[in-house]
């Protein structure tokens, strides 16, 4: 049976990994290429590179970093950040990305989902959604969670899947950074109807949170996290050993 995926996410700005990486045994922990190789060698099932640069030079540097990383790791690589046109898709796919994640760009230009799915296939199009509770409903936020769009998240995800998104990354802003576990009710609400893979993001504080995630919401396909991996608090190998011990199918390397 298919295994649950563990996905470290690297935020890259000006060619460096940000979010305070503290790692032992790496010469340069903030080098995305070296960090990606480390994760790839140590059991990550997939990687996400998130481009958080704003400038054109930063973008060029990001593409260069992406190309170098993609030519040294041989696991799937998803790229997000500032994707709003087919040209953006083309640029990152030609630099070695396997999947492209759209977020704010899809909110302002929803047709990008259908157009990119048609050109590259649904397997290539990941809809990433920043979501938080507002007055008892799940709202979609954009621009890195700064702007409440007022849109209902479940409706937006339904529409994204219908338009051709092949995977959903659900970032709960209510649990993000709190490190008290993934947002199980929000994830359950999405997994109830999503017939494409759902990747949980936001809230991982330790190994037990991943165990709880996969046990409580069995339809979740993957868990994504950044800082707990970057800070070396959780090693992917340890995480996978404990998941396996808890009866959750994972890929061992």
């Amino acid at each position: 049976m298919i295994t649950k995926r563990i996905i470290p996410c690297l935020d890259v700005r000006d060619g460096r990994v940000v979010k305070g990486v503290r790692f032992q045994g790496l010469a340069d922990v903030s080098d995305p290429v070296e960090l990606a190789a480390h994760y790839s060698e140590n059991g990550a099932d997939e990687l996400v590179f998130y481009d958080i640069t704003a400038s054109a030079e930063g973008r060029k540097l990001f593409t260069d970093v992406l190309r170098r990383a993609a030519s040294t790791i041989f696991i799937p690589l998803t790229v997000g950040g500032g994707i709003s046109t087919l040209d953006d898709f083309e640029r990152v796919l030609m630099s070695g990305a396997d999947k492209v994640s759209v977020n704010s760009g899809a909110i302002t230009h929803p047709e990008i989902i259908r157009e990119s799915a048609k050109r590259y296939g649904s397997q290539c199009v990941v809809l990433s959604v920043d979501c938080a509770r507002v007055n008892g409903a799940f709202h979609v936020f954009r621009n890195g969670g700064r702007i409440d769009t007022g849109m209902d998240a479940l409706e937006w995800i339904r529409r994204g899947i219908d338009e051709g998104a092949g995977e959903i990354v659900l970032n709960s802003m209510d649990t993000d950074g709190v490190r008290s576990g993934f947002d199980l009710p929000m994830l359950s609400a999405v997994c109830d109807f999503a017939e494409v893979p759902v990747i949980a993001s936001g809230g991982a504080g330790g190994i037990k949170d991943f165990i709880t995630l996969f046990q409580s919401v069995p339809k979740v396909d993957a868990g994504l996290a950044a800082s707990i991996f970057h800070f070396g608090e959780v090693s992917i190998q340890d995480l996978k050993e404990q998941l396996a011990a808890a009866g959750i199918l994972v890929r061992r390397v």
Binding site: I2, R5, D221
Partner: peptide, 27 residues
């Protein structure tokens, strides 16, 4: 089960030169 199948899954292999040195159950 979701379609497409996306992710890592284990192989059950017959003997073949393509699988030389590949451990049983590799994903």
């Amino acid at each position: 089960l979701k379609v497409p199948q996306i992710g890592w899954n284990a192989l059950i292999c017959e003997p073949h030169p393509l699988f030389q040195g590949i451990p049983e159950g590799a994903c």
